[in-house]
Amino acid sequence: MAQRGWSIGFFGLFGRSPALREFDKALRAVDLHPKLVPEAVKLTALSLIDDHARGKDPTPQAYAGAAEILSYCALGSDHFASANGEALAACVERRIEEALGAGVNLDAQLVLLALHAKIIQPSVVESFQLESGMD
C-alpha cells in the first residue's frame, strides 16, 4: 500500500497535511491537546488508521475513534470521563477491553502505541493490566 505524504511542516515553510490537521482536530475534540502527543505518535497513529482503511481515505469517524482511544490512554479514566462524559468513557473502556481480547485490531494497536510511547497513564495500565513485554 502506498503511504500518503504526511507533512508536519518544516520551519513554517510547508503546512501540516490535511490528515494531521484532521487528527489534531479530533484530539482536541476529546480534550487532548495535540502538542501533548509527540509527532511520531500521531504519524504512527495515522499510518495505522490508513492501514485499516484498506486503500480508501480514512473517514472523520476513523480519526475520532483513534483520538478517543489515545485520549483515554493519555488522560486516564477520570479526566477523560469528566471532559467527555461517562457514556463516552464507558464506550471507550468497552472498546479497549474488546480490543485486548480480540488481539490485533486498530484499537489494540493504538493502546499498544500509547504504552510503548509512554504517553499512557499508570492508572490505565493498572486498570487493564497492560504490559508491553519490553519492560
Rank of each mutant, 00 (worst) to 15 (best):
S82E: 11
A62F: 09
A81E: 11
C91P: 03
V104L: 14
G101V: 03
L115H: 08
A81N: 04
E86N: 11
R94M: 08
L70T: 05
E86K: 15
E97M: 12
Y63E: 08
L113G: 00
A64F: 10
E86D: 13
Q61T: 11
A102Q: 09
A62S: 14
H116C: 11
V92S: 01
C73P: 02
L110Q: 07
Y72K: 04
L88G: 05
L110W: 02
V111Y: 00
R94D: 07
L110T: 03
F80K: 09
I96M: 14
L113W: 00
I69Y: 09
R95Q: 13
I119H: 01
L70A: 05
L115I: 04
D107P: 09
S71H: 02
G85Y: 09
A83W: 02
L115S: 05
C91T: 15
V111S: 01
C73E: 01
A64T: 14
R94Q: 09
Q109P: 06
L88Y: 02
N84S: 04
Q109D: 08
A67L: 06
E86G: 13
Q61F: 08
S77G: 10
N84Y: 02
D107Q: 14
L106N: 08
A66C: 15
L106D: 05
E86M: 11
A83P: 00
N105R: 11
A67N: 03
L112R: 05
G101H: 10
A62W: 06
I119Q: 03
E98F: 13
A64R: 14
A90I: 00
L113A: 00
A74D: 04
